[in-house]
């Protein structure tokens, strides 16, 4: 699909003023284009540094091709930029090292993250990649809340994690696949050890 034919998704029409504010254009890996305000971009440390380094003027933004974000799809990027537009101008939280982290999930964020686990996974991953601290906070809190009141067995199903036994079996299988002779040598060594020998020689 060409860039010209790509659908243009307006993140927040109401938030777009007619003033001098500059709107950067970003393109997802499925060729969806987004216009994001400079203030909203500041929520993302990665994108903020990128546009600072590029030094685009307002003309450059219009004339030059959109900045491609190759590893995030349009659906996820739309959620990310929606969140950024909603929280633009807010202070970026700094980690003070305190535990446990107390995070409140705002209503807007709760609605935004009312999505399936696959998309939530992508949202967390995109927030981590674009280094959007507050979005990462709330999305991780959302995942942590998913574990509330569940037993370890239920959590294994939710998070698709293997049990200790399955983990051991997988590790053993991987080792054997890597070196099939290793187990034979180990058994031979154990046998010799049982017989009283200290070494193979």
């Amino acid at each position: 699909m060409s860039v010209e034919n790509a659908p243009v998704v307006d993140v927040d029409e109401a938030a777009i003023p007619v003033e001098k504010k500059m709107y950067y254009r970003f393109e997802s890996n499925d060729k969806k284009e987004f216009r994001v305000s400079e203030l909203a971009i500041q929520q993302s440390e990665t994108l903020n540094r990128l546009v600072e380094a590029m030094g685009y003027t307002s003309e450059d933004v219009e004339n030059k091709p959109a900045i491609a974000i190759e590893n995030i799809d349009g659906k996820t990027l739309k959620l990310v930029f929606q969140w950024c537009e909603h929280h633009k101008g807010e202070a970026i939280p700094v980690d003070d090292g305190s535990v446990p982290k107390i995070v409140e999930i705002p209503e807007f964020d709760a609605k935004l993250m009312d999505i399936d686990n696959g998309l939530l996974f992508k949202l967390i991953w995109a927030a981590d990649y674009l280094n959007i601290v507050q979005l990462l906070n709330v999305s991780c809190k959302k995942v942590a809340n998913m574990a509330q009141g569940k037993t370890p067995a239920q959590l294994r199903r939710v998070y698709l994690l293997p049990s200790d036994e399955e983990d051991e079996a997988a590790k053993r299988a991987a080792q054997e696949a890597q070196d099939p002779r290793a187990r034979e040598v180990e058994e031979e060594f154990e046998e010799r050890k049982r017989q009283g020998g200290n070494s193979f020689f």
Binding site: V99, P100, N117, F121, K122, W125, C140, A144, Y159
Partner: peptide
């Protein structure tokens, strides 16, 4: 990610640590 059912183990370790810290 293409499978549609990503596992927690597919997450970066830093992100998993963030999830644990928020529990």
């Amino acid at each position: 990610s293409e499978k549609g059912s990503p596992s927690l183990s597919d997450m970066p370790v830093d992100v998993i640590a963030l999830i644990i810290e928020r529990s």
